[in-house]
């Protein structure tokens, strides 16, 4: 099997400005934060970002990397409103496409299945249609229903974080929820998986039931060993959300000087420096 091990920098070197990138996880849960931090350090910009948004969206918006955000919500979960997202919305200058959460899943599913769209009731009659006038409806060929035709959300690249992976790109979640990470990978031209631990395939399979190996190597184009890589979002059962750090992040985000200090302290250096600064035993 092909060895797909690479570093965060290798992943970012494969990304280009103007790409459409999907980020797995959900809110402030199991986000591929070390990959996001690597993106922050790069000169890649002008991105279209598709996400069940959390601090991934917040950080990339704050760094001016995002031209177009496609999302159902952006939240830090225990802190309902993401401060950078909120500031970016209120400042303007970025295109925001806000879908119902289920529509987002449906668009990824359509892309994964190479379909131009999938029909749904979600979004009908709501302002999702008013703010996205390109959305069309489709009449059932079998009845009278007129359904919203959710267009495929095709991704150039997907970034997800898992608990375990092997070097070939099989990857396992050990927490309670797979979120939509497999769908993000399948909707993408190329999928990059970071993991808390990279282990031999036999160890991966011994680590949980077969169905916990959510991501299969045919999805995957790169595997990154990223211990504590989801910090400060949760990565159950390896660790929970770092609530104290998240609060510090949210507090700093509200004030330009405090944010500059936060960036200097945590984000100006590489991932090792970040992990040292947050006190992790990487």
């Amino acid at each position: 099997m092909v060895d797909k091990l690479m570093t965060e920098a290798d992943v970012v070197a494969r990304l280009r400005s103007g790409m459409t990138i999907g980020i797995g996880g959900w809110g402030s849960r199991r986000k591929p934060m070390s990959l996001v931090r690597a993106l922050l350090r790069s000169d890649v910009s002008d991105l279209t970002l598709v996400t069940y948004g959390g601090p991934d969206a917040g950080l990339l918006l704050a760094a001016g990397k995002v031209r177009h955000l496609v999302y159902g919500f952006v939240s830090l979960d225990s802190i309902p409103l993401e401060p950078h997202f909120r500031a970016a919305r209120e400042r303007g200058g970025v295109r925001f496409t806000e879908y119902d959460e289920g529509m987002l899943q449906w668009g990824l599913r359509a892309a994964a299945n190479r379909l131009p769209f999938l029909p749904t009731r979600a979004g009908l009659a709501s302002d999702v249609r008013r703010f996205n006038p390109d959305l069309r409806t489709v009449r059932s060929p079998y009845g009278d229903e007129e359904l919203l035709a959710m267009p495929a959300l095709r991704l150039d690249a997907a970034l997800v974080h898992m608990n375990r992976a092997d070097a070939a790109g099989n990857a396992q979640y050990l927490g309670p929820d797979p979120y939509f990470d497999d769908l993000f990978c399948q909707a993408a031209e190329r999928a990059y998986v970071s993991a808390e631990r990279v282990v031999p395939t036999a160890e991966l399979m011994a680590g949980g039931p077969p169905q916990s190996v959510l991501i299969q190597r045919w999805h995957t184009h790169g595997v990154v060993h990223a211990p504590h890589g989801a910090h400060f979002t949760s990565c159950a059962p390896d660790y929970g959300r770092d609530e104290a750090f998240q609060k510090a992040y949210a507090d700093a985000a509200g004030d330009p000087a405090a944010w500059a200090a936060f960036v200097e302290r945590y984000l100006a250096g590489d991932e090792q420096r970040y992990q040292r600064a947050v006190g992790a035993t990487a």
Partner: peptide, 26 residues
């Protein structure tokens, strides 16, 4: 649940649509 003011540049941005469109139609 999304925003107060005009959508393009709200005076107060909130969570987003979340599941409300799909919830209410289903």
């Amino acid at each position: 649940l999304s925003a107060i003011g005009p959508f393009d540049r709200p005076t107060r941005a909130l969570l987003g649509m979340r599941g409300a469109p799909g919830n209410t139609t289903n």
